[in-house]
Design a protein around this nucleic acid. Sequence first.
DNA 1: AACGCCGCCTGATCGC
DNA 2: TGCGATCAGGCGGCGT
Length: 263
Amino acid sequence: MPELPEVEVLVRHLGPRLKGRCIQSVAVRRSRVIAPTSERALRGRLGGARLVTVARRGKYLLFVLRRKTEFTLLGHLGMSGRMYLRPINAAEPKHAAVVLGLGKEKLVYEDPRYFGRLTLDTRPLERLGPEPLSKEFKLAEFAQALRRSSQAIKVKLLNQRLVAGLGNIYASEALFRARIAPAMPARKLNPAQIARLHRAIPVVLKRAIRFGSTIAIGQPKYGERLLVYDRAGLPCGVCRAAIKRIVQAARSTYYCPRCQTKH
DNA sequence: AACGCCGCCTGATCGC
DNA sequence: TGCGATCAGGCGGCGT
C-alpha cells in the first residue's frame, strides 16, 4: 500500500514527465473517486489546463495546474491506487478510475478498490500534521501530542494529524527502529523513547525512498527493505527472536518482542 | 475532544 | 473445480 515513500518516488517520477504538459481530455470511469467534485466541474476545470508542478504532502499527490489561474488537483492512492503514463491508444486497465489525455500519452489513475481520490477538493490537506521530512516536524510538538493521548503508540502513529505520511507499514518499521513496543500508550513513552521515535520516523521514510527510487515505477512492490512488516515468525535482524504479529485497531502490527520494550 | 467503530471496495487466499 | 467466507486497510463520518 502506498505510503509517503511510495508517493514521493511516484512524484519524482511523474514531475519531470508531466511538467508543461496540457490536459486535452478527461475521462472519469468511477465518479466516486472525484467526489465531492462533479464530473462536469472536473472537465470544466482541467480541460486545457497546463501542469506546473507535481508535489507531495503526506500521502497526497498535488498536481499544480494553471489555466488563467493556478489551482490544485489532489490525488490519493488509497490502498491499491496507481498512476502512470501510457501511450494515448493503450488499452485501459479493468479498474481505471480517471484517465487524463495529454496528447501522445495519457495519465492513468487506476484503483481496484477505489479507496483513493483524484479531486479538486483540497480540504483534506488542512487536516494534516507536519511533514516528517521537513523542519516543521518538531520534537517538542510531537512530544506534547503524544503526552495527550492514551492510544497505543502504533495506532497513534497512523493518525495523519500527528504526523503526515505514515501508514501501517512504516508505523511498524519506525517503532522497530526506535525499539518501542507498539502497544504502549502514547503518553507512557519516556522522553528518550519519544526522541528516538521522532528521529526514527524520517530515517525509515528516507531509507524507503532511497530503495524505492532504484526500483521501476509501476511494480506491485517498490522493493522496500522491511525489517518487521509482514515478517511474522521470521527472525529479527538484530536479535534473531521471532517477529510477532498482533492486531491493533483492526490492523496488523509487526514487532520484535525482544528488541521493542517498555524502556 | 479523543477515541472507537463502521462502511466503502475488490482481489487473493483458504476451506470444504 | 467451484464457490462462499474471510482478510487486507486509509480515511471520513458518526456516535459516545
